[in-house]
Amino acid sequence: MNHLDKELLAIKDKVNEMWSLVEFQMLAGKDALLNGDEELLRKIIKRGKKVNAYDIKIDRMCENIFALYNPVAVDLRWLMAILKINANIERIGDSSEGIAQLIREANFPVDPELLETTRVLEMYDAAESMLADVQRAFYEENTELARDLIKRDKLLNKIHVKTDKVIIRYIQAHPDNINQSLKVSGIIRKLERIGDQITNIAEEIIFYVDAKVVKHKQKKKRGKDPQ
């Protein structure tokens, strides 16, 4: 292994650690939504600060390699991808923090009927498994899995699109529970964002492995091989 490889591996390790922090934020968020654990919410928000520190650290490490090693070809693509993956993981962390805030403001316990009709838990499960899989796709350089994730994001979008209608109907039936309705609607919006952020990461994986740009394709073409 040459010196550059060692540096790249160090970055990969850092990204991995950051990923674990964000994964915790996601899992803990769903728990807190179901059991109102204030301690968990505090932890989610605290991990957010750590995630930000990782974000900066990883950017610096990449910067140094650009300056000192003149990376080219696959190394260059990998670093470019890492910069974007890093930014997206950081944003997933932000979204998770925002969700923790909303959960707190929703005042436990959240009406199970609201959870059920909005399909927010289903979204949570989907986003969680996508996050785990995108990490796997990254480590295995598995573009098939990455492409599959781009397709799976559609479920999140589908649920999100229907949210407004569902929430309005819920509020009409429960005019006394507007606060929770708005908070859950906010959580759904953030989960939808997380789905997009995971999709961005999946696209970066495809970019550095196959050198194919799948970004900015029309929505309906997403997930298909661009050739």
């Binding site: 550059l4 490889d5 080219v72 070809a73 190394d75 260059l76 693509r77 050198a211």
Partner: peptide
């Protein structure tokens, strides 16, 4: 050549591997 060479040998050479 420096972003996306087609041949593995080219890539190995320019990336110093």
């Amino acid at each position: 050549i420096f972003t996306n060479p087609k041949d593995k040998r080219t890539e190995d050479y320019i990336t110093g591997r």
